[in-house]
Design a protein around this nucleic acid. Structure first.
Length: 726
DNA sequence: ATAGGGTTAG
């Protein structure tokens, strides 16, 4: 409205002009100076009034200065009816703080405020969280005796709540003589905003008892608070309430409900609410897509997505993210291509999901492609994008590129640091992880819970027990963070891997929360590695109590027995697994060559170069035998003949992938493409393959990077980056 | 003749 450089007074309304004309006509009959002064005051009043009326939405600082000077020039301060609408407009403007300035000016010139003045002033104080000014205004309101007004009191509740003084808010609320739906909502909303969902729900119940009917907005506040905090304890009650009462729903409430129930896995209830909307709102549809994806119903989500017309960027990104985070990164990239064709420009959140898809795909070709894309589309300094790139390169096994992105970032946040630390940890570079952690401290970047997971993970995977213990203790001592389940998990892992099983068990026993399947799994895995059969069984039994069909527990139990050659027990477990239809996930290894992926299962003969691959395997084995390699059959679970076992071990999928990689090395070398051999495996690398890969890296002078289920192994000159500790 | 809640999807 107003120019930034030259101030043009706003147009005077026609009523104000005629009023001013009337006043001016009176000028000729003025006899005394006092008469003229009075007249002047009236003119100013009219000028101010028309000015304030026209100022509706404009509140530039120049206008405010002008309004304030007009105010000062009026001998007798104007009545509240003059400035109350202006206060309201100011409080709704982008400069709510100006309302308080204006309020101070009114007080300064001795202007009278009434009960209509306070709600806007308090709203402004609420918006800028001005606690001390809010208290002062409260005091003035008491003096002017307007506090028993429900409008003023509701505004006070809102103001105190917004300033984080929830108890002050509650005090005003409790002392109110009458409360309507807006009052209840204000208090409930304030509880929700500070994540006190239990308090909010208590009030919701109280409200019903006092015969005030909750409306859609109140429910929406509670439901979205449940969504934000992950509090599922009211899901049932909310559903029952909506079934038993006729609440007029709007798209806001339905969106929140769909998010709540689909996110909790109750997709039928989510669909029920979704179907209630006759008009398909983009928010509701997107919530449905997101919720179904989170509940693992990706195909259902896709159906909704395809049915949604006029999709916006958020909707597209939701679908891409869903695929990226599940096992379908390829499909995510296809949706991204479709998005690009639709002419909508992706933003940083979209790119974050696309990069995450590439990370899960783990092919360097794709990784380089998406990096190039972000660079040529103006994302080179973007925080979100760069953080995602660090993670992607780390997951693709290229720690150097991950580090390069990190070092070149113009700004880093706690996520950048945590991601980089975690990248080092994944690659077994615990010393780099610790150096980075120390550097973070030097640069005054405050670590969070996620940072500590990364650091502790690094310690546990490199056997730095004492260091890990110190860092774990520093969480509470130095950083006043409360260790969560994941941190205890890292500690169990740390002690377990280091064969300090008693201490691992002590951690579990001292945890303030119930250990979950992952914690027991970590202990059990350590027991298997260190041959602690008895404790392993204890851990496995705990797991099977929590998840009777837990394949990992059954497999690890059979592993424990296999190691002890207790084949009867192995067969028993196998039988249970077959009965319950639980099967161990099959080992699958992938290698990329010239932009094509090649996958191998154990003993796989499906590849068209299969014969060459097995011939290469024989050649490699004979060369390794000269270097002292003896197949280690302990990694085989079932009771088979010794000779057969050796074959099974030799046919592990990663060995086939490796031979395929070696076979094609000459061809690649000619083209100058000779790079490290990169293999991605879905399970952990077995002991035999680990020795095998180390020797190949030496005998064939090749660097090999294997990503397994939990970490990276970088084989070079006969050694592995994990230092045989994994 | 002026006043109080304003949320929902990546």
């Amino acid at each position: 409205m107003a120019s930034h450089c030259i101030h043009i007074p706003p147009p005077i309304s026609s009523t104000a002009v005629s009023a001013a004309t009337t006043v001016l006509n009176k000028l000729s009959v003025c006899k005394t100076l006092n008469h003229i002064k009075q007249l002047h005051a009236q003119i100013l009043h009219h000028r101010l009034n028309s000015f304030l009326c026209n100022l509706s939405f404009s509140s530039s600082s120049i206008n405010l200065t002008y309004a304030l000077s007009l105010f000062s020039s009026i001998p007798s301060p104007p009545k509240p009816t003059f400035f109350n609408p202006f206060l309201r407009n100011l409080s709704h403007s982008s400069e709510p703080k100006a309302t308080i300035l204006f309020y101070k000016k009114i007080r300064h010139v001795g202007g009278r405020l009434d009960r209509y003045s306070f709600p806007p002033i308090l709203k402004a104080a609420s918006k800028v969280s001005a606690f001390f000014e809010g208290m002062e205004i409260h005091g003035v309101a008491v003096k002017i005796a307007t506090v028993s007004d429900p409008f003023v009191e509701t505004a006070l509740v809102d103001m105190y709540g917004s300033c984080g003084r929830i108890n002050c808010a509650r005090k005003v609320f409790d002392e109110m003589s009458q409360r309507d739906v807006v009052t209840w909502n204000t208090m409930i909303e304030r509880y929700c905003r500070c994540e006190l969902v239990d308090e909010a729900f208590k009030l919701f119940e109280e409200m019903k008892s006092s015969n005030v009917m909750p409306d859609a907005m109140i429910l929406c506040n509670i439901v979205s608070a449940c969504n934000r905090t992950g509090n599922m304890s009211y899901n049932r009650a909310i559903y029952d309430f909506l079934k038993g009462n006729d609440v007029r729903m709007d798209t806001h409430l339905v969106t929140a409900l769909v998010t709540l129930y689909a996110g909790a896995g109750c997709t039928d209830i989510a669909r029920e609410f979704y179907m209630k909307m006759s008009v398909r709102d983009l928010f509701v549809s997107t919530a449905m897509v997101s919720g179904l994806s989170k509940a693992g119903r990706l195909d259902d989500a896709r159906v909704i997505f395809d049915q949604t017309g006029n999709k916006d960027l958020v909707c597209w990104t939701t679908m891409i993210k869903a695929y990226a985070e599940s096992d379908h990164p390829q499909e995510g990239l296809r949706v991204f291509e479709e998005l690009c064709r639709s002419g909508i420009k992706p933003d940083d959140v979209t790119m974050e999901s696309v990069i995450s898809a590439c990370a899960n795909l783990s092919t360097m070709d794709r990784a380089k492609w998406v990096h190039l894309y972000t660079r040529s589309n103006g994302f080179e300094s973007d925080l979100l994008v760069n953080n995602a790139l660090i993670n992607m390169y780390a997951k693709c096994g290229d720690l150097d590129r991950a580090r390069d992105v990190f070092e070149k970032m113009p700004m880093r946040d706690v996520v950048s640091w945590s991601t980089m630390i975690n990248a080092f940890s994944m690659h077994g570079e615990a010393s780099d992880a610790l150096i980075t952690f120390a550097r973070m401290k030097e640069e005054n970047m405050e670590p969070n819970e996620v940072t500590f997971v990364g650091v502790l993970y690094g310690c546990s995977h490199s056997g730095l027990v004492e260091e890990g213990k110190k860092i774990f203790a520093s969480m509470t001592n130095e950083y006043s963070l409360t260790p969560k389940l994941e941190h205890y998990g890292c500690m169990v892992d740390l002690f377990g891997r280091a064969n300090r099983l008693r201490e691992a068990l002590e951690i579990i026993e001292s945890m303030p929360m119930a250990p979950n399947v992952v914690i027991w799994g970590s202990l059990m895995s350590a027991c298997r590695v260190h041959g602690e059969l008895e404790l392993g069984e204890v851990a496995a039994k705990h797991i099977l109590e929590l998840e009777p069909n837990h394949d990992g527990a059954l497999v690890l139990m059979s592993n424990i027995y296999a190691r002890e050659q207790r084949w009867d027990d192995v067969r028993n477990i196998r039988r249970v697994m077959e009965e319950k239809n639980v099967f161990k996930e099959k080992g699958l290894s992938r290698i990329d060559l010239n932009g094509k992926s090649h996958e191998f299962l154990i003993g796989d003969k499906r590849h068209k170069q299969s014969d060459e691959i097995y011939a290469k395997l024989e050649e490699v084995v004979s060369k390794l035998n000269l270097a002292g390699y003896v197949p280690h059959s302990g990694s085989v679970l079932v009771d088979v003949e010794e000779e057969e076992k050796k074959d099974l071990v030799l046919w592990h999928s990663e060995k086939l992938a490796l031979c395929f990689g070696l076979m094609n090395e000459e061809e690649e070398e000619e083209k100058g493409l000779c790079d490290v051999i990169r293999i991605v495996k879905n399970l952990r690398v077995c002991e035999d393959c680990h020795v095998f890969f180390k020797l190949v890296s030496k005998v064939y002078e090749r660097e090999i990077i294997v990503r397994d289920r939990t970490r990276f192994h970088r084989y070079k000159d006969g050694l592995c980056s994990c230092r045989d500790y994994w």
